[in-house]
Computed example of a mutant assay.
Amino acid sequence: MFFLDVLFYAFIIVVVIQLIYYGIIFGRLAAHKNQIPTSKNIGVSIIICAKNEAENLATNLPLFLDQDYPNFEVVLINDHSSDDTLEMMEGFKERHPNVKIVDVKPIEKFWGNKKYALTLGIKVASHEHLLFTDADCTPLSRQWIKEMASHFSEEKTLVIGYGAYKKKKGSLLNVMIRFETFMTAVQYFSYAKIGLPYMAVGRNLAYKKTQFFEANGFVNHMDIMSGDDDLFVNQVATKSNVALCISEDSFTESIPKKNLNAWMLQKRRHLGSAHFYKTKHKVLLALFYISQLLFWTLSIVLIIFLHQWHVVLGLVALRFIVQFINLGLGAKKLNETGLMYWLPLLEISLISFQFFIFIKNLTSKPQYWK
């Protein structure tokens, strides 16, 4: 009985922690109101690094080049592709004078290092304001550049956007991928709202060229193969220099991985980068995950043994109500409301999946940039 009492009081503490996250921290995204910044029409360089992406470039480049924006260029970086990527880029360059090509040759020191390729692309960019995306991304409107660029100012030098994944009916893996992406976005948007920005995704990210070089680019983590987006943001973002762009016209959409092994490898790379975050960010992220794990474990154990079960059920219900309200409002802003129907099941599945890849990364190192 004493042991169950200890578990019960530990459960109360865990619920309080969960309510702080879902009610206060994530509530900041739920309460976020999109402002309509003044259109600035500043020059923008779109940076796209591609390795063996000929097919995706053929599909998506016309959409980037058709943006309703008066002053932009597209910098295409061919990172030593073995398919027709370079030829595809050259074809677009012949038809569009605002296309630049950087053909990266293999160098032993930087073999397979996307950060090296991106650095070369940034150097040739004509404009101060850089907008990053991937070859497999699709801008969801012709106003994408306008929306992202309008959030720049003298103080706001880094703009964080949302990179969604395409919905596929009848695929449980697709739902899981989209839920993980949504929860990651809830966290990085919410932490930025409370003045603790810690990451962004390279599928939809913008910052100033001078900021990149003032931070010495990727030098501080060049030896870490991943992290050209989240580690750079973790390094340079502050509570005052980050702007959030959360409007549907600013979203990009990518095709998610088609099998579990490919997605697992992708997530293992991302988890490997998180190891190098600032300590305060790692503590916040770890505390949230541990509190989730303990919430489910302790609630199940206490209910099975019927220990203070009426109080336990009341706290479980309270936590779920707060979670559904604030995640639901966040999902509405990010156009992911369909995920809420499966929330408890998706949460348990994601916790289990993250635990598995954490153990996997302890025993072997993931592969990197293609």
Rank of each mutant, 00 (worst) to 15 (best):
N52A: 08
H281Y: 13
L285Q: 10
R319S: 04
I194A: 08
T119S: 15
N234Q: 04
K267H: 09
P37N: 01
H270E: 14
I290L: 11
K332V: 03
A262T: 12
K257I: 00
E53G: 03
G43T: 03
I255L: 15
E154S: 14
L86S: 10
H96P: 07
F305T: 05
S126L: 12
E347P: 00
I77V: 15
F251S: 00
I145C: 09
F218Q: 03
S45D: 06
S247I: 07
N113M: 08
A10Q: 10
V99N: 05
L345M: 11
G195Y: 07
L362R: 13
K168P: 01
K282A: 04
T85E: 05
K169V: 04
Y188A: 03
E154Y: 08
N98H: 14
Y22C: 04
I47T: 02
V74G: 01
A30N: 01
L63H: 14
Q35R: 13
V236A: 07
V316D: 04
W144T: 05
E253Y: 03
F8Y: 14
H80N: 15
I24A: 14
S352N: 10
Q292C: 11
I357K: 02
G23H: 06
N56Q: 15
N326Q: 07
N234W: 06
T119V: 07
L65V: 07
K280N: 12
F320D: 05
F295G: 00
V301L: 14
I357D: 00
R203G: 10
